[in-house]
């Protein structure tokens, strides 16, 4: 059996993301369903620099595994994205 998938979630705590509510996402860790709980590491990040770039949509931003960006992030949106990533990984 291969290594279980591990995922890293970075919540942007830069100014723009913070004023648009990224601090509420800190509850993400407690709301992880059992299938994700052991696989996801949640961390805060100093400004990810995404708000300056119009290509990424609207703050607050969350970044998964260093490449996937969730914009306008809510806990639900991040959880959906994490489930998708998990499926991809299990394929």
């Amino acid at each position: 059996m291969s290594e279980p998938c591990k995922m890293k979630v970075e919540i942007c705590l830069g100014t723009t993301c913070y004023v648009l509510g990224s601090f509420r996402l800190s509850a993400l860790e407690e709301q992880l369903p059992p299938e994700l709980a052991d696989r996801v590491e949640v961390a805060g990040a100093a400004c990810l620099g995404l708000c300056k770039d119009r290509n990424y949509g609207k703050a607050p931003f969350v970044r998964i595994n260093g490449n996937r960006v969730v914009d306008n992030a809510t806990i639900e949106k991040v959880l959906d994205a994490l489930k998708e990533e998990l499926e991809k990984c299990n394929e």
Binding site: C12, G14, T15, S26, A43, G44, A45, A46, C47, G49
Partner: peptide, 20 residues
Amino acid sequence: GGTTANIVSRELGRKIDMDM
């Protein structure tokens, strides 16, 4: 400043530790 910290982190090769 987040960007400030990132610049210094990158230039000096020092990690930023943020406790969620």
